[in-house]
Design a protein around this nucleic acid. Structure first.
Lengths: 207, 207
DNA sequence: GCTGCGGGTGAGCGAGCGCTTAGAGTGCCC
DNA sequence: GGGCACTCTAAGCGCTCGCTCACCCGCAGC
């Protein structure tokens, strides 16, 4: 819903909407710390230290440590929905749209692995209310991918016996990239995106 | 209770090798607690309580909380290697062996989701030495699957442009089952195993 | 120059953590 | 029956956690 401030490289700074500056620095520090050590193993002192502030400064901008995780998770999931929705709504065949959805979603998980890790693996650390809100966003993610696959089946482009199961598998494959992707490894996010788009097209039996 | 280990259902009690009885009860309690809340969010008091013992009893059988995780992780990884090695060494075409490897590996992740979660997602909570040991087992897991895929390519059964990348994707798909399974209660481990075996055969271009 | 105010700090609170210690209960060999 | 080894507990140590509080600083309005 916000104006596009997107750069070409793109995914390094999706936190532009967070103000004021100190609140953003704390949030970025929290993302790094949560991704490295996990939510429960991260201390508020560590977060504040990474942001160059005292532990008490955190509580001027956020009520609790959990609110930080909630904010990160919501912004991240909104970005994920945005990526898939954009791909789903472009012009082209279902095959082209699915390839674009998978490759851009994978690029996001690989390139922004720090953020993606927190978004995908720290859901259980949220309280019930926050978790329910995030789960609603996840259902939107699922619906976008399922929509493309259904389009492909209707158009006769895909051969998919089990649409919900295949949707689950496609998303699972993309999400797990955040777990194993290594910045120092031999593959770039672009290469993984391309490989995965090809594998997914095979999974749906696209010609 | 005696040493009657493996039941027909099989995956509920792979902890028969852990003795004495109290040590096994503590370990099973730790698996449940780690899977539910994560390693860092689990307290030694919680583990001991689930096993019906006092907090101090834990330290008679294990030196530290981390040793519990280490033991769980090693036994779980050994089981994973065992499952894949068994599938890889059966008689049959590469297609049959890959299908068997994927379906049994997925069945283990889905049915023993509690254990699999700890094994797959708490690796970073281990210290450097323990992590190094576990990573060696993971390389064996990778090698088993890659071996089957290479066999299939050589035999002309598979069409795989990128063997290491496809191996990674196949394992990633199976492992991520531990994250999402039972959130959607409508599938049995057997059904997911069958679905995934089919999807993987499509990924490798099997006939 | 004084005041009000939003963003910041140093010190520290109560709680809960991983882990230890002193000692009790139980079975076994002599 | 006495000594010993093993298992387990009640109590609690030292520490670090998330979070709070009393106070400070730079700056805009008057």
């Amino acid at each position: 819903m916000s104006a596009a401030e997107e750069t070409a490289g793109g995914e390094a700074a999706p936190w532009g909407e967070v103000t004021p500056d100190a609140a953003r620095r704390l949030l970025v520090a929290a993302v790094e710390a949560f991704a490295e050590r996990g939510y429960h193993a991260t201390t508020t002192r560590d977060i504040a230290g990474r942001a160059g502030m005292s532990p008490a400064a955190l509580y001027i901008h956020y009520k609790t440590k959990e609110e930080l995780l909630h904010r990160i998770s919501r912004i991240g999931h909104e970005k994920a929905v945005d990526i898939l929705r954009t791909a789903a709504q472009t012009e082209g065949t279902a095959t082209e749209r699915l390839a674009e959805a998978v490759s851009s979603f994978v690029r996001w998980h690989a390139g922004g692995r720090t953020t993606a890790r927190v978004v995908q693996y720290e859901l259980d650390s949220l309280g019930p209310d926050a978790r329910a809100e995030i789960l609603a966003l996840r259902r939107q993610v699922d619906a976008e991918v399922r929509g493309i696959i259904e389009d492909g089946v209707e158009a006769g482009e895909f051969d998919v016996p089990d649409v919900p199961g295949t949707t689950l598998a496609v998303l699972s494959l993309c999400i797990d990239v955040a777990r194993w992707f290594n910045v120092n490894g031999s593959r770039t996010p672009d290469e993984v995106g391309e490989l995965y788009a090809d594998l997914v097209l095979r999974m749906v039996g696209a010609g």
